[in-house]
Amino acid sequence: MLWLNQRKAYGESLVRLGRQNSRVVVLEADLGKSTMSCFFQDAFPERYFEMGIAEANMIATAAGLSLTGKIPFAGSFAVFATGRAYDQIRTSICIPGLNVKICGSSAGLSDFGDGSTHQSIDDLALMRVLPNMTVLSPVDAVETEKMVMAMAEHDGPVYLRVCRNDLPVLTDPDVPWQIGQITEVKPDGDIALLATGVMVSLGLEAAEQLAREGIRLKVVNISTIKPLDADRLVEVLRGCRAFVTAEEHSVIGGLGSAVHEALSGRLNLPSAMIGIADQFGTSAYNWQELLAHYGLTSEAIAKAAMRLDRETAR
């Protein structure tokens, strides 16, 4: 299986966008080498703004640039891009619905070594609660590229969550993608996994484990966290007896919450939520070790699905 990096896809896509559209500008807070917006700096230095280590100012500056017709992409680590600049995103960007794109890089636990201060367990929750905001969480580098292009087409604020580490490529570069899309990666199943980011590929592993037990797991990639298409959710869950949500994020306020909010009063199925259980991150030698520590594994998904399968057996 091919493994590619979402950060690299972000940086390269910005350059492609920059060639297509002179209104695209990029802002960074001294992390351009990490978010890989540095590719854009090399290609279009006059449209690249190093804003120093000052995220609040960067985000509100992006608001000002958008008010002169530019399409600003402002990037930093997800924790800083969202939490450090939350009120700027809220007041200066989301209330007026300005056309600003925010990239939260090294999201989730993917910055494994740096520990709790650098691991975003709350970025989806923070961005999702803001009216007018669109929230994207790509499954792989190929989808990241499509998202960056779609972000520039969409008029309004968008948050893009980007993983630091290489991820298996699950999507096809030739298949178009649009904001709001919910994709059945493995269509058939009695229990559904509704997952985002790295949890989708772990879900495919879980599906193989479950198949050996005679349990069919449907695997669904939800890469648009907001807006979440409730009708489409009901449709993909048709025929399933239960579902599991999985995300590299707190169980509070992320994909699992969004799914349950969307289904509330519409579809009443037994469910389980896999995510980080209301606690901060911690340093580790590698990402896999950290994912395992917080129970974000194919085994955990399989176990939850098995339990639901048992409980809902007809």
């Binding site: 703004f49 609040a56 100012n57 985000i59 509100a60 500056t61 992006a62 608001a63 000002g64 640039l65 958008s66 008010l67 002169t68 600003p72 700027q88 200066s92």
Partner: peptide, 8 residues
């Protein structure tokens, strides 16, 4: 900050 963005 918004003014800085507009000026840029």
């Amino acid at each position: 900050s918004i003014g800085v963005g507009m000026a840029l």
